[in-house]
Simulated assay, not measured.
Amino acid sequence: MPALPISRSFVPLLAACGLGLLLAGCQGLTSRTVQPEHKAWEHLKPGCTGSECPLVNIDTLHFDDEPGLDALVERRLLEMTRNTPDATAPLPSSLQAYEQAFLRDAEPRWSSYLQAKLREQRDQLLLIELSSYLDTGGAHGMPGRGFITYDRNRHQALSLQDMLLPGQEDAFWQVVERFHGRWLAKNRLGPDYAKDWPFQRSPHVGLGRGAVLVKYDVYSIAPYSSGHPELEIPYPQLNGILRPEYFPGRG
């Protein structure tokens, strides 16, 4: 059967699509850069004036193309408002409801800060970093951190099990522990420090552009003054451990 002729008007379209394939543009919309809308506000306790008024400061994100991500970010921020990890009280229904309840009961100088920011994006992945700071009158406030790694192809957040090949979780943490040892050496922290602050696994794992990020809560592997230590695990160290589609450029 002879080949069908290609009209001249169709050639530019083929060329454009060929270029788009090189740029991943013809593979779907997930290659587009995401520019979420910031939604930020700060309110003081109603009727209060002066420098010691309790306040709530919220800086969050809105994603036009991922409505489910908005709800996930809000829920994760609300989870960070709990005073203790084992708190069992129901979460507030919204950030606005949390703000109203906090300010209603707050005493002078209390404050609550919640923030979500798009830290990095590549391929089909968005890495959102969550931050909190809650001060209810103790010696110092309590900061919190967290990650959401969001797969735009799947329209869902990835757990560590989603990121790893089956049966590779222990191998992953062995690699992280090795880099924890390098972190100790880099910061000239000796055996006594490691004994007082031994290695732990962390719930905060994110897929960055150049490395897998593992962030730690305060008081986990370091004292409060050290803030939130973060370990960077280069992707080549995770061959055979991380799912191939989550290496940079393979999404």
Rank of each mutant, 00 (worst) to 15 (best):
R122N: 12
G144Y: 01
L158M: 01
Q124N: 15
Q115V: 10
L114M: 09
P85C: 14
Q124L: 08
H155D: 13
S94Q: 08
L91H: 05
Q156N: 13
S93F: 07
S159C: 02
S94M: 04
I148G: 02
G190Q: 11
S131N: 14
H140G: 01
R75Q: 15
E107N: 05
P191F: 02
R182W: 02
Q168V: 06
Q161L: 11
S159A: 13
I128S: 02
A97E: 14
D123T: 09
L184Y: 08
P191S: 15
L77M: 10
A71F: 00
S111M: 11
P143A: 14
E79T: 11
Q174F: 03
R152W: 03
L160I: 12
P90F: 02
Q168I: 04
P90I: 09
A171F: 03
P85R: 15
Q174R: 12
P108A: 11
L114E: 07
L55A: 13
L69S: 08
L126E: 03
Q96I: 12
D59K: 12
H155M: 08
Y113I: 11
G190L: 03
A185W: 05
T60Y: 00
L158K: 09
L78P: 05
T84I: 12
D192L: 10
L61K: 07
Q115M: 13
D64F: 11
L72P: 02
G141H: 04
D192N: 13
A139Q: 11
L160V: 11
L125P: 03
E66M: 12
Y98A: 11
I148T: 06
D105H: 13
D192A: 13
M142E: 13
L165F: 01
A185T: 07
A171S: 15
A89Q: 13
V175K: 05
N83G: 13
E107T: 10
A71V: 07
R145T: 15
N153G: 15
N187R: 14
K117N: 12
F179W: 12
Y98G: 00
D123E: 10
E177W: 00
E129P: 00
M142G: 03
R82H: 10
R119D: 14
W183F: 08
S159T: 15
L160S: 01
F172D: 11
G190F: 00
P166A: 10
D65A: 15
V73F: 02
D86C: 05
L189T: 07
M142F: 12
R145A: 13
H155Y: 08
L78F: 07
S94D: 03
A139F: 13
T136A: 10
R75K: 14
V176H: 09
H62L: 10
Q161I: 10
R152V: 01
R182P: 05
L158I: 02
L77E: 04
Q96D: 15
Y133I: 01
P85S: 14
F147C: 10
E66S: 11
